[in-house]
């Protein structure tokens, strides 16, 4: 995998930071290199919050995301603030509750029911980040589903395995459309 810059954005509490850590860790476990960074302070709690990861098959020197090749946004505010400086061939996932931002035009956009899947299909809104992890890995092919599931298991609180793995599976099997 060439240097892939991933940005995940939403609102504080949606778990985008954990999602970015899981993606980076899964990449490392699969033998790749990864970097992960996130917003800190008040920004990380309310309003729009972002977390980023870089995954590559070679050593990563500059550890910051400057022109993401992949962006996921879970809120309108995040869509307006963080869908920018996209690489030409960038992929954007916009949650179906969010309007597709103008900046995403001319890029590959998936408009997917991540929040709805977590809330209605898994039955727990808090699993939206894990649903997203499932979808992202499916699109980017960072590692196998089994490797990803193992990473998720190691990073989530004990006792939440059942519904988080259900969320991961739901994300992995989500209909991506055309």
């Amino acid at each position: 995998m060439e240097r892939m810059e991933i940005r995940l954005a939403g609102t504080g509490g949606q778990g985008v930071i954990l999602a970015s850590i899981i993606l980076a860790e899964a990449a490392v476990n699969a033998g790749r290199y990864a970097c992960q960074t996130q917003s800190y302070g008040p920004e990380a709690r309310g309003g729009a919050c972002k977390a980023e990861a870089i995954i590559s098959d070679s050593k990563i020197s500059y550890p910051e995301v400057s022109d993401p090749g992949f962006v996921l946004v879970l809120t309108q505010k995040a869509a307006e603030k963080y869908v920018r400086n996209l690489k030409d061939d960038a992929i954007v996932i916009v949650d179906s509750r969010v309007e597709i931002p103008a900046e995403a035009e001319n890029h590959k956009v998936y408009h997917l029911p991540i929040l709805d899947t977590a809330e209605y299909k898994v039955g727990k809104a808090v699993t939206a980040n894990i649903v997203a992890v499932g979808v992202i890995n499916r699109i980017l092919g960072i590692c196998s589903f089994e490797e990803l599931a193992e990473t998720v298991r190691n990073r989530i609180p004990k006792g939440t395995e059942e519904f988080n793995l259900k969320a991961l599976k739901a994300g992995n099997e989500m209909d991506l459309g055309g």
Partner: peptide
């Protein structure tokens, strides 16, 4: 802070 907060391999 760059290195302190960075997660990497």
């Amino acid at each position: 802070e760059m290195i302190g907060h960075l997660r990497e391999t």
